[in-house]
């Protein structure tokens, strides 16, 4: 161990990991930045690759549909983070309480996370389009729900909520697991002391459980932030970007999140270089936001 980093054996054992990391992360990442500055098409180009400077970035920022996707992604991320964390924390409190069959519930809440996002999107599409309007229980209490104009996926705002619901259903169980681990690690003495002081369950939650699990919040907020920002598969299969909307005088897809916008720029508009530029912008923004979030959360953590 003393010889440390100069030992060839050390590097040899590290080599597979380093090579894999280089090949699939570092090199493609640098190539991506390079391509974003060119007119690359991934098609036969008689003129060869031309260097175009920041043209792709400027055109991206000027494109209303890219700006719209950016704004929509922020809104979606905010709602999604909120809902996932509230649901996940609630579920975690539930399954750490003195409850019969709590292990079965834990497994049950985790299961949706094992369903692929694309399949999940199609299942929820079926629920929103067919099951909800045809459910006798719902349509007798609230007949308007079966009106075609009131379908979840028929309006822009409710369609965004539909993605949030499907996304939360998928991801809450996973986040719940992290909260469970954190809640179980809170020392029992604290609760006993609170009991002697006569604290109500709500006070205990507010002043013991939540502060003591702050380090879990750092992780879960980070994970849900990144996951919501990168949402793609549920978006594609559930709404495909529809229904449409008007923004800055242009007609465009109303529920197209950033990842889908980047994909459509690449494969429908056939502007691969520009979609690469959008990915780079996406990356930079996401890094900045996550750094701010993690720093803010870290301050609230309690060292034991």
């Amino acid at each position: 161990m003393n010889k440390g980093k100069h030992d060839p054996i050390f590097w040899l054992f590290l080599a597979p990991a380093i090579i894999a990391f280089l090949m699939v992360i570092i090199i493609p990442f640098l190539m991506g930045i390079f391509y974003s500055l060119t007119d690359w098409t991934s098609r036969p180009q008689p003129g060869g690759l031309q260097f175009v400077g920041l043209k792709n970035f400027i055109e991206s920022i000027q494109d209303p549909s890219f700006l719209y996707s950016f704004l929509l992604t922020f809104v979606y991320t905010f709602i999604n983070m909120l809902l996932i964390n509230i649901v996940a924390f609630g579920l975690a409190l539930l399954v750490t309480a003195k409850l019969k069959f709590k292990n079965i519930y834990r497994a049950g809440f985790f299961l949706p996370n094992l369903v692929g996002g694309l399949i999940l999107g199609y299942i929820w599409q079926f629920i929103f389009n067919i099951v909800i309007p045809n459910l006798p229980v719902l349509s007798t209490i609230y007949p308007a729900i079966a009106e075609p104009a009131n379908l979840m996926l028929a309006n822009r705002n409710s369609a965004v909520m539909a993605i949030v619901i499907a996304g939360s259903w998928q991801y809450s169980g996973y986040i719940m697991m992290i909260y469970i681990a954190a809640i179980l690690s809170v020392p029992e003495e604290l609760f006993e002391a609170a009991k002697i002081d006569g604290a109500s369950p709500f006070k205990k939650l507010l002043h013991i459980t939540i502060p003591m699990t702050a380090q879990a919040f750092t992780i879960t907020l980070f994970l849900t932030l990144v996951q919501s920002f990168k949402q793609f598969d549920v978006n594609v299969s559930l709404t495909g970007g529809g229904p449409s909307t008007q923004f800055m005088g242009k007609f465009m897809r109303g529920t197209e999140l950033l990842a889908l916008d980047i994909y459509n720029t690449a494969f429908t508009s056939n502007s691969l270089a520009q979609s690469q530029a959008r990915s780079v912008l996406f990356f930079v923004v996401l890094v900045v936001i996550s750094l701010i979030q993690v720093r803010q959360n870290k301050r609230k953590e309690i060292e034991l």
């Binding site: 229904p243 449409s244 909307t245 008007q246 007609f251 897809r253 459509n264 429908t268």
Partner: peptide, 21 residues
């Protein structure tokens, strides 16, 4: 007409008309 024009420009216009917007 390019796929880009048909899918990204025309598609949303038809969709807005169909939705009564």
């Amino acid at each position: 007409f390019s796929e880009d024009f048909r899918n990204n420009t025309l598609g949303p216009i038809y969709n807005q008309f169909a939705g009564g917007n």
